[in-house]
Design a protein around this nucleic acid. Structure first.
Length: 300
DNA sequence: TACACGTGGAT
DNA sequence: TATCCAAGTGT
């Protein structure tokens, strides 16, 4: 929703001070925030963090950056190795796209992750959020970073709604730009600070307002925590879906060293029509390679 | 603009 | 147990 009015300069300054100060005292020591983390490391972390919690990303991130410390190292591998190494992080197309990114970075950018927002945005799997995050966190560029955490914090603190709109809106972008500090490095720190606040205090289901640095500024708190109004957020069914079937089938491929016979995949999922449909879609997506006879493997 | 796309922990 | 949701992107 559009805020009634944009915050004043004094409001903005107070928000900056409260949030940046809190971050200085409460930031988690995450490996991709260390000074020795390269832009490539930041990129790997951002791909893994798309819809996946930090605690599950941590061990996979460490394994990836150790095995493939530069884009060229991953680009030299078959895509199937990236898919296998993705393990059970979920959404394995991210692994495929990150591998495509590595090859594009080698071919088009001399092996270095680009700094420019538009060049980043042109890479596969890099959208509005991820391009801004890499430019800001890896290179200190000044871009509004609007992930689900930032959107929720701004929705509550400024707009007064428990939840942001279902999809990112123009007013949200205007507000985020209004709040972005003028100095590029400070803007980047502000963005990661608001994200951290959304993750550690202003969480979706259990906000810890008593320990929130914005508690004296927060519009949602000031108005008595009005419940979310608007359409209920659609639950995502999973059991019995094509997604579950795809995950099961890919898991068999991932856990096998070589090719897998059709008979083995048949044992992994009973519903014949659904299994065939899922397999076709995995092949169409490039996540699975059909062999000439009867068999499948991770793509080379 | 909705919907598809994995997985597992929390409530 | 069922539902929610976690640093989104592509179509």
């Amino acid at each position: 929703m559009e805020p009634p009015t944009l915050p004043t300069d004094a409001d903005v300054a107070a928000l900056h001070a409260a949030c940046l100060d809190w971050y200085g005292q409460n930031a988690r020591d995450l490996p991709w925030r260390r000074t020795y983390a390269t832009p490539w490391h930041v990129m790997v972390s951002e791909f893994m963090l798309q819809q996946t919690p930090v605690v599950r990303v941590l061990p996979m991130y460490e394994a990836w950056v150790e095995r493939w410390p530069r884009p060229a190292d991953l680009a030299a591998e078959p895509v199937g190795e990236a898919i296998r190494a993705w393990g059970r992080l979920g959404y394995p197309r991210r692994a495929m796209r990150l591998h495509e990114c590595a090859r594009a970075i080698v071919e088009r950018h001399g092996g270095e992750v680009p700094e420019d927002r538009d060049q980043l945005r042109a890479l596969p799997g890099v959208g509005e959020y991820t391009s801004a995050a890499i430019a800001a966190f890896a290179y200190g560029r000044r871009h509004a970073v609007l992930d689900t955490n930032v959107r929720r914090v701004l929705s509550r603190a400024i707009t007064g709604n428990e939840h942001p709109p279902r999809t990112l809106t123009r007013p949200e972008r205007v507000l985020a730009e209004r709040l972005l500090p003028a100095s590029p490095p400070v803007a980047a720190r502000w963005s990661v600070a608001v994200m951290e606040l959304g993750a550690l205090r202003c969480s979706a289901t259990a906000p810890d307002c008593d320990r929130c640095p914005l508690r004296t500024h927060c519009a949602w708190r000031r108005t008595g925590y009005p419940a979310h109004d608007g359409p209920p957020r659609r639950a995502q069914a999973y059991a019995g879906t094509d997604r579950q079937c795809r995950g099961r089938l890919l898991g068999v491929l991932r856990d096998s060293d070589g090719p897998v016979a059709g008979s083995e995949l048949r044992r992994a999922w009973d519903d014949h029509a659904q299994r065939e449909r899922a397999l076709d879609s995995l092949v169409a997506d490039g996540l699975v390679e059909p062999l000439d006879g009867d068999g499948f493997r991770l793509p080379r």
